[in-house]
């Protein structure tokens, strides 16, 4: 389990990119839900954390490929491969990420994660 940030530092409508390998992004939707997916668009290298969060979808800032945060599935127009999804836990006023597969390398420590946004 990776500490992402304090709950207060992630208002609704925001996203945080964690520089893991590969990078992962945590989203807090306008409806108050938390989701996490691999951050890199499967169409071209761009950060989905920089994209547009609407409902439980995120739109890539470069070419508007849309991914469903619940399933990681793309809309299929530009991006055809899904991104992996991960779990988010909110406990004791903090946001935590639980990676879905062990092959993701959490290669940096919590301090550096705090600095990432």
């Amino acid at each position: 389990m990776i500490h992402v940030c304090a709950l207060a530092d992630m208002p609704r409508g925001s996203a945080r990119r964690l520089p893991l390998v590969p990078p992962v992004s945590v989203f807090h939707t306008s409806d108050g839900e938390f989701y996490a997916i691999d951050d890199t668009c499967t169409h071209q290298d761009a950060s989905l954390a920089d994209g547009w969060l609407e409902g439980c979808e995120v739109e890539c800032p470069l070419h508007a490929a849309i991914f469903d945060l619940r399933t990681g599935e793309p809309d299929g127009l530009l991006a055809r491969k899904p991104v992996r999804t991960h779990r988010v836990l909110v406990e004791a006023d903090s946001v935590y990420l639980v990676l879905s597969t062990p092959d993701v390398m959490a290669d940096i420590g919590g301090d550096e994660l705090e600095a990432a946004s």
């Binding site: 990119r17 990078p23 951050d39 890199t40 071209q44 290298d45 761009a46 950060s47 920089d50 994209g51 800032p61 470069l62 070419h63």
Partner: peptide
């Protein structure tokens, strides 16, 4: 595809995260 928000800030570009 360098991408700027409406206030002019650079928000995205291919490979920008690297």
């Amino acid at each position: 595809a360098w991408t700027y928000d409406l206030s002019g800030k650079l928000v995205a570009a291919p490979n920008l995260t690297s």
